[in-house]
Amino acid sequence: MGPVIVTDSLTKKYKAKAVVDQIDLRIPGGSIYGFLGPNGAGKSTTLKMLLGLVKPTEGQIQILGKEINSKNRLAILSETGSLIEAPAYYGHLSGKENLQIICTLKNVPEKEIQRVLHIVRMEEQQTKKVSQYSLGMKQRLGLAAALLGNPRILLLDEPTNGLDPAGIQEMRELICSLPASFGITVLISSHLLSEIDQMATHVGIINQGQLIFQDSLNVLHEHSRGRLYLHTSDDQAAFRQLKNSGIPAQWRDGRLSLRLMEDSRIMRAVALLVNSGIGILRLEQQQMSLEDIFLQLTGKQVSL
């Protein structure tokens, strides 16, 4: 499926500073697109521009094949659900009553309520006052509200922020079920790289307002250079032996490692060490984490 969200040179400046700088998003239909970056990188501003909440300084936005303008904005956004920052609610009303108000605002029939409550697994809590909800339940109610009207696109800004591990797991499972079960394309922004690693099919990485990577998650991992760590009876002697034999070994943080390479070359390295009287105790393959990749792309630690 082709892209359902396309931006060209999308930019937002406040005074002279570009908080979003010439970004070209390509978000495939049916994907979970992880929009990654540290706090303050421009993620929320980008999502607000997609929703028409912030006016771009320059650039174009296309959603579902149509360029957004003042005439068609509402029609296009009627097929888009969103959960930006903390969900708004009336604490003295029940979850169902809050959703009834949103149905009125969206001009959506109230029979939709039970459908979205089932998706977010909140049928049993619908009559409880929202002021009595946990943070995780409030986030799920916000997601239910975003799903009213059966949108084709869902924009989520840090939906697991502040949740405990159980709440994060629950929200992750809900989000992962949406494309396959309901045909919804999800754009999810986060600074929690490990979370995106477990949810996304595609990734865009933004840093200081600039898009520095965009492709599938598999391509991102293929670009990361994994390593093979060796634990031997004498690691330093093994390191010297491998280097002297022209095998690209590295000594890093007190550990001996090799770049991932063909099996035949790994077998040669192991045989070389064994024949030199050095015992192989353990071989451990380790891919770079998404955090490591981000550090490699940006040259700085992620600000969590």
Rank of each mutant, 00 (worst) to 15 (best):
M1S: 14
K55A: 05
G40A: 00
Q114K: 12
A75W: 08
F294V: 04
S131A: 12
P87K: 06
I27R: 01
F35S: 07
G95I: 01
N39A: 06
I119M: 12
G209N: 03
K300F: 01
E173W: 05
K106A: 10
H191N: 04
S189M: 03
W251Q: 05
V20D: 02
H92V: 10
V203L: 14
N207I: 02
L154D: 06
R225T: 11
L10I: 01
L147S: 06
S82T: 08
M171F: 11
E110W: 11
E67R: 15
P159N: 08
N161E: 10
R282W: 03
L93M: 13
T80W: 00
G29W: 02
L260F: 10
R172L: 15
S134R: 09
L36C: 02
M288G: 09
Q22K: 14
M137H: 00
L148Y: 08
P56K: 05
P165E: 10
P179F: 07
E173Q: 14
S177M: 12
S257V: 02
Q285D: 06
G2L: 07
Q139H: 12
G246P: 06
D21Y: 01
L295V: 12
I188Q: 08
T127I: 12
K17L: 10
P56V: 05
Q214I: 00
F182G: 10
L281F: 08
V270N: 07
G30Q: 08
I119V: 13
D215S: 14
L242Q: 03
D292E: 14
R225S: 13
K128Q: 10
L187C: 09
Q198K: 15
S264P: 03
L258F: 05
D8Q: 13
L99N: 11
I168N: 10
G246H: 01
G277F: 06
L51P: 04
D263T: 14
G29F: 02
G65V: 09
E173N: 14
M122G: 00
M122F: 03
W251P: 00
I153D: 00
L256C: 04
D8V: 07
G95K: 04
G52L: 05
G142L: 07
T232D: 03
Q169K: 15
S257Q: 13
D8H: 09
L53C: 02
T11P: 03
E158L: 08
A180L: 12
G246L: 07
I84R: 09
R26L: 04
A166F: 13
A249K: 00
P248I: 00
E284R: 06
S190R: 09
Q22E: 11
R152H: 11
I184M: 01
D24Y: 09
Q132A: 15
N72Q: 11
M261C: 12
S276I: 06
D235N: 13
N150I: 04
A41G: 04
N72T: 13
L217T: 11
G209A: 01
V302I: 15
L295A: 12
R115E: 14
Q214C: 07
V219Q: 15
R259Q: 15
P28R: 02
I206A: 00
K66I: 09
L143P: 01
G299A: 05
Q250A: 12
S94W: 03
F182N: 13
T104V: 15
E110Q: 14
A41T: 03
R255I: 00
L304C: 11
E291L: 07
E67C: 01
I119K: 11
G246N: 00
I212H: 06
Y229E: 03
I68R: 02
A88Q: 14
L228E: 05
A249Y: 03
R121Q: 15
